[in-house]
């Protein structure tokens, strides 16, 4: 008994130490460095024009990526679960590709495709700047976040089956009405988790975005690029810590908001 208690304590200590060194300490150090000189220094650092611009750009990318991923994620999940078409297995594999491919490879691929001389490079002549512009950053972010909604919604769709939709049909609902009033509410948990993961990943994406951004402070820097730029280019470590803290705070806010929203809905 004593030995088992001892073993248990050891396991807990190891787990706690592991978490402390790898997660808690880094976060704590960043927080400590950010607020070490008081809240004033932090606020000044995150309200510079470059910081505000980066903040807005990160939010803008999230605002574009999330709706697109929701619409196409749910569509793909429906096709994977309900569809009986050739190439379904291939689609299954393709959905997981972004998990496997390094973001930097995504960036390179996008440049090859959309950059000058690429297959779709012609759009630049039409005045649409994809690479080194907002569209490129959005495309990169969509690529790396694509699986989240699909993979969260798919098992829920499997579980609920089609009987509820058929019941809705016999009660007079069109497929569109059945989707909005029966299917969507049934998958809302999965969808919500997919959105949370998409938001967090969109805010945090770095490797793919840095490849396709022109990287001008105040113009085309997202928050992650701002952290990177301040630290390496400007040797402004304090500013880098403050931007990182802001980034973390946004991710936490997204997580808390979604949790609250869900709780409110489920108790309705």
């Amino acid at each position: 008994m004593r030995l088992r208690t001892g073993a248990r304590l050891t396991a807990r200590t190891v787990a706690l130490a592991y978490l402390t060194v790898l997660v808690i300490l880094p976060v704590a150090v960043i927080l400590w460095r950010s607020f070490g000189e008081g809240i004033g220094g932090f606020l000044a650092s995150v309200t510079t024009p470059a910081a505000i611009s980066a903040f807005n750009l990160s939010l803008l990318i999230v605002a574009i990526v999330v709706p697109l991923n929701v619409v196409f994620g749910v569509t793909v999940a429906l096709a994977l679960v309900r569809g009986r078409f050739p190439g379904r297995g291939a689609l299954q594999a393709v959905v997981d590709l972004p998990f496997a491919v390094s973001p930097i490879v995504v960036g390179v691929a996008l440049i090859l495709l959309w950059g000058v001389g690429g297959w779709f490079g012609g759009v630049e002549a039409l005045g649409v700047k994809v690479i080194f512009g907002l569209p490129g950053m959005v495309l990169a972010t969509i690529f790396v976040t694509m699986p989240f909604v699909v993979r969260e919604v798919e098992p829920v769709l499997h579980e609920i089956g089609q009987e509820q939709e058929q019941a809705a049909a016999t009660l007079g609902a069109s497929s569109w009405q059945a989707f909005w009033r029966v299917t969507l509410p049934a998958i809302r948990w999965g969808l919500t988790y997919g959105v949370v993961l998409t938001v967090a990943r969109s805010l945090g994406e770095f490797g793919a975005v840095i490849m396709v951004s022109s990287g001008f402070p105040g113009v085309s820097e997202t928050l992650t690029l701002l952290v990177h730029g301040r630290y390496l280019d400007d040797h402004n470590t304090f500013g880098a810590y403050c931007a990182a803290t802001l980034l973390m705070a946004m991710a936490v806010v997204a997580l808390v908001l979604m949790t609250l929203l869900d709780r409110k809905r489920s108790t309705r």
Binding site: Q164, A167, A168, T170, L171, P185, A186
Partner: peptide, 13 residues
């Protein structure tokens, strides 16, 4: 028509 399913097909939400 009205249709009743073996496993109810209740709208759970």
């Amino acid at each position: 028509i009205g249709f009743v399913f073996q496993h109810y097909a209740a709208f759970k939400h």
